[in-house]
Write a protein that binds this DNA or RNA. Structure first.
Length: 100
DNA sequence: GAGATGACCATTG
DNA sequence: GCAATGGCCATCT
């Protein structure tokens, strides 16, 4: 099981209606300080991936795309479908962050 | 091999 | 809450 595969497993395991941060997933995958590695890995995902990549946000509860950009809107919509709404441009981690 | 870059984080003031 | 700072990992030039 490579670190990447482990990462995919954890992303797939994020429950509906919850989100996880880059640093959190990095830790779970066994790379405590590799948040950037998580971001890089996500960017490499095929566009037809089954992974809920939209549930991955940064530690500030914000979407890591320029606001109102195309991917930003896609992610926002998917989150809204799960009842996760942006409050002042960011997500309330306190309410939605995955506890594991 | 050095420097820049990127879907980042924790700490500090 | 926000900005600056230093750190992290992998890739590209």
């Amino acid at each position: 099981m490579t670190a990447e595969e482990t990462l995919y497993q954890f992303i797939a395991a994020i429950p509906f209606g919850n989100v996880a941060t880059y640093g959190q997933l990095a830790r779970l995958a066994g790379r405590p300080n590799a948040a950037r590695w998580v971001g890089r890995t996500l960017k490499h995902l095929p566009k037809d991936t089954k992974l809920p990549w939209h549930r991955v946000i940064n530690a500030q509860g914000k979407i890591s795309f320029p606001e109102n950009s195309e991917p930003w809107n896609v992610q926002k919509d998917k989150l809204a479908d799960e009842g996760i709404l942006l409050h002042n441009g960011r997500i309330r981690l306190k309410d939605f962050q995955w506890q594991c």
